[in-house]
Write a protein that binds this DNA or RNA. Structure first.
Lengths: 256, 256
DNA sequence: TTTATTGTTTTGTATTACTAAACACGTGGT
DNA sequence: ACCACGTGTTTAGTAATACAAAACAATAAA
């Protein structure tokens, strides 16, 4: 799980994997972590206390947890994204008007990151959470993004992360991807029948900057039985495209 | 600005100050950071590339920025807080019913951290953002929290962070604090006329767990001219107390 | 072209973060 | 009541590493 690509400052690598497992385990003790990471207890202890002194970790009794120190940096990074406030508002509108779950995702380091998540009245519950990173070929919004990203960028991303499978429907070859992306461009939006999760149907469109480069992608997700019919899907797609277009105009002129 | 309390793993300390200044500067280059932190360029470069490989930093051209890697940990830490979902919903209700800005704050490491922030229709804009850390004696919610926290905990916090001043009205002595906290307990809620920010009026109540220990505090803030009148303030306070009470009952039985 | 000013890379060394082992503390079992 | 084993914590010694210094590359300005 932990990438052993050696980085100049190895302590940062250790810290990163420490935090990841700390989060995975939903809180853990020193020994538990030491066993998992295959390092000495004292090493883990030193890291944890250092992280704690800087607000990145809390301990309750003998268990350590990821702390709220990350929330500050995280929210800063989120609000720094171009058009964040405007897109957030639009996402909310879509969620209310469709009643479904509407999300906005951006790309960073070749992966998709969920930035905004707004639930409508009858929205489904998914496991995705703000900040989660996913492979772009695993989600509808990700494919909508790729379809409108420069070819060179797509190639870079595929080269870096490959096209790992998730379900049997996931696209795992560059040829199939190219065909899919072309289909999305022809259609104007991306559609998925349970690629990410069984029984989930999703529609995604890119949010484009001037010059057409995508900032991210917005998607609506709901239970297949509710969205799968031709009529409703097309309705939602048109709504998304309309909102995306509005955003494109406002972002262009406001630059934030 | 950088605390030089030596921690076992010093790289983490360097990383922390690096990230802080990176955020303060809203993006910066290698040389700029090296000068500010009084270390060599190569050191900064090594840290930045290491952080980047782990998704904590991005670079655009020659400028580095805090990345979205923090968002995942941050959101995790936020949702881990007891009663988060329920409190979020109630915060929204209060924002809608009052039309003002309603926030929820918890304490970590002796400081207040803004967890939730919901704006009503006529809500003021403040500089506070989710994840921001503030001294508890600087904000209304913080004082509401302190008023219902165990005396020992209050003493610990004051001992650790002191009572730094912010405006001329900020409480900076333990005696004054004790009097204020008692007044809050007598009244049932905390009130502030521009302690944190000029022209802002805020009302805060604790959100208590079973056994009365506070999980955090919820506050409503608005322009002084709108809230300052006796009638309106009392109205808001009663609404908050009612919502807090509802929360206390639901959280008790749901444990999340 | 020249001259600053970037970011990047390299090399050697002093620092430091690691392992290992001992210590303190509490708990559960017998 | 004791003992054994589980914690987290602390301490020493050493191998690893993160650092400073300086050279290098690349870009932009003069």
């Amino acid at each position: 799980m932990a990438d052993h690509t050696d980085t100049p400052v190895k302590s940062i690598g250790r810290m990163a994997t420490l935090l990841e497992t700390l989060q995975q385990f939903d809180g853990a003790g020193v020994t538990e972590l030491a066993n998992e990471l295959e390092v000495t207890k004292s090493t883990v202890y030193n890291h944890l206390t250092s992280l704690e002194q800087h607000g990145y970790v809390v301990h309750e009794g003998d268990d350590y947890y990821v702390g709220l120190g990350f929330l500050d940096h995280g929210e800063y990074a989120r609000q720094r994204q171009i058009g964040y406030q405007l897109i957030r508002q639009k996402t909310r509108e879509v969620a209310e008007e469709t009643g479904e779950l509407c999300q906005y995702m951006v790309e960073e380091h070749g992966l998709g990151v969920f930035l905004i998540r707004e639930s409508g009245r009858q929205a489904v519950e998914t496991r995705t959470r703000i900040g989660n990173r996913v492979h772009l070929n695993h989600v509808t919004a990700g494919k909508a993004f790729l379809a409108y990203a420069p070819d060179a960028r797509v190639a870079e991303i595929v080269d870096k992360h490959g096209l790992p499978g998730k379900t049997e429907n996931t696209i795992t070859s560059t040829e199939a991807l190219e065909i899919e992306l072309q289909a999305i461009r022809d259609r104007g939006y991306a559609v998925d029948k349970d690629e990410h999760l069984k029984g989930l149907y999703a529609i995604g469109v890119p949010i484009q900057y001037e010059s057409g480069q995508p900032l991210g992608a917005m998607s609506v997700a709901g239970p297949a039985n509710r969205i799968n019919d031709e009529q409703r899907a097309e309705e939602i797609a048109q709504l998304l495209l309309e909102k995306a277009n509005e955003l494109q105009l406002t972002i262009k002129h406001s630059q934030s």
